[in-house]
Design a binder for these strands. Sequence first.
DNA 1: GTGCAAATGCAAATGAGTTGCAATTAAAAT
DNA 2: ATTTTAATTGCAACTCATTTGCATTTGCAC
Lengths: 131, 131
Amino acid sequence: MTIQRKTIVLEKVLEILQHTQNAISVSQLMDKLETIGIRPNKTTLYRLLEKLVSTTDALSITLKNGISYYELRQKRPHHHHFYCTKCDTVFCLGSCHVHTQKIDLTQLLPSPKFTVEAHDFNLYGVCESCR
Amino acid sequence: MTIQRKTIVLEKVLEILQHTQNAISVSQLMDKLETIGIRPNKTTLYRLLEKLVSTTDALSITLKNGISYYELRQKRPHHHHFYCTKCDTVFCLGSCHVHTQKIDLTQLLPSPKFTVEAHDFNLYGVCESCR
DNA sequence: GTGCAAATGCAAATGAGTTGCAATTAAAAT
DNA sequence: ATTTTAATTGCAACTCATTTGCATTTGCAC
Ligand SMILES: [Mn+2]
Ligand SMILES: [Mn+2]
Ligand SMILES: [Zn+2]
Ligand SMILES: [Zn+2]
């Protein structure tokens, strides 16, 4: 373990992740970087995001379109997402209802001997500006 | 629209889908077909499943591993799934808590003007027999 | 039997994501 | 300041589920 090198790409990616309300995909990220004149190699970008996830600075969610979207953990506690099928934007939702409403997942299981390690919950539909 | 042809593959696939408790992937389906001596072309299988889905006889769920799992609609009303990360089995869960507990999704949205068309909810963990 | 749409098979393409490996580069050690 | 070392980058090739094009086969209707 040594000190992680500072890079322009890392800085800009963090900046973009900080300033967006949404979770974003690699291709959306590449597009945003392109608008500020940065065209990173996609392997580099995947590796950077993988590192952010492994250090728990970021998390990724994967939707049923098979695409992963990334966001910084620091921004919000555990919550879920809304995917707009028109504009492909992934909006963050309010606090997870499973936790706020203390929903007992055990009673949904085929057997109480199942161990639940994670859950995901996604809404699909059309966002305000796409209506 | 004409009458759909009967085929051995279709019959056997329906039979397998009928008799399993779980939602199954194309590769799991091919494995099961192979044990009864049927080795269908994978394109054919994909097309068959796509047809079952388009006629609403079946539905597919896609998990964060990027793989789609299929099941017959007639078997159960709307519900969600548990994915065992050890054996890759997708178990069907009890009735959807969003409906049974009348959870108001609107309050989770960034704005009430969002239109929710669908939701999915998946549990990930270890099943009874894999513990 | 003939005609025709449905079904099938094969190879090639797709597309997100990954991997191997060689080339760069920044930081640490000298 | 120069060398050493390890992190970072880029490129091409690869993976793997799924899709597509296209030519061939097969049931069903007449
Ligand atoms: Mn979020
Ligand atoms: Mn099910
Ligand atoms: Zn949650
Ligand atoms: Zn539900």
